[in-house]
């Protein structure tokens, strides 16, 4: 569904990603792990259209067939194509209610009934959000905000859902909950690109994984393979 070939990304004047290849197949959970500053966020932000200073090729295959090059596309085009990012740090709009945050997530869609259906769907996934629907985003707890960030990204009905560090700053019990939900979203047919520092949790649910080190892909394989890999164990899983 998304083919990345020879991708270089410059971010804030730094050559953050160097000549990487990645392939994300429809229905997969693909994870990108690595240390802070390895280039994970730069990669995902380039796919989302937020970082425009990149070269190489990114080709997106539409569900109905037909390939699109993502070169030069702004974020709104990506969303319309079916690529949605839940950004690092959640970025909830604190002065808008939960429901308004979700409505904003559906900005590119027109059909009110279908939007209401999606709203019901995400409330089903995250029942806590239904209780908080009229509460301002800023008053939600950290865990609830993370749920809202994921739910909001789902509201555009993306083909490819990208999650940037969804476990960041959450208590372990919430981390487990978030990963369960990611798996559930995937089971419902969405492709997921997951950027994580919590390598163990990410590899456990991933079909395919890439390890980034200083902007280059150091290793790749299935999630299970990398979990067993001694280098990965030493560097990312605490031995």
């Amino acid at each position: 569904m998304l083919e990345i070939r020879g991708l270089d990304v410059w971010y804030g004047g730094i050559h953050a990603v160097k000549n990487i290849d990645m392939s994300i197949g429809r229905g997969e959970i693909v994870t990108l792990i690595g240390a802070n500053g390895a280039g994970k966020s730069s990669t995902i932000r380039a796919v989302a259209g937020l970082v425009r200073d990149w070269k190489g090729s990114m080709t997106f295959t539409k569900p109905e067939g037909g390939q699109v090059s993502l070169a030069g596309c702004p974020p709104e085009t990506m969303v319309r194509l079916g690529i949605s990012l839940s950004p690092e740090g959640r970025r909830i709009l604190p002065h808008l209610t939960t429901e308004e945050n979700l409505t904003l997530g559906a900005f590119t869609r027109k059909d009110r009934e279908e939007i209401a259906e999606s709203m019901e769907h995400v409330y089903g996934l995250f029942p806590k959000l239904r209780e908080r629907r009229n509460q301002k985003g800023g008053t939600l707890s950290g865990g609830e905000q993370q749920m809202l960030a994921v739910a909001r990204a789902l509201m555009s009905k993306p083909e490819l859902l990208m999650l940037d560090e969804p476990s960041l700053g959450l208590a372990p019990i919430l981390v487990a909950e978030v990963f369960d939900i990611i798996r559930e979203i995937n089971r419902q047919g969405r492709t997921i690109l997951l950027v994580e520092q919590n390598a163990y949790a990410a590899l456990k649910i991933a079909h395919k994984a890439y390890v980034l080190e200083t902007g280059e892909i150091a290793l790749s394989g299935t999630g299970a393979e990398l979990l067993e890999n001694p280098k990965v164990r030493e560097a990312y899983l605490g031995g």
Binding site: L50, P74, E76, S84, L85, L93, L104, F107, R152, A153
Partner: peptide
Amino acid sequence: TRSGLAMRSISHDIETTRLMGVS
């Protein structure tokens, strides 16, 4: 309105508003 919602959103966080597909 939707446009009004986008305005209120931009006033807080332009980048995140872009990610929602808002021009």
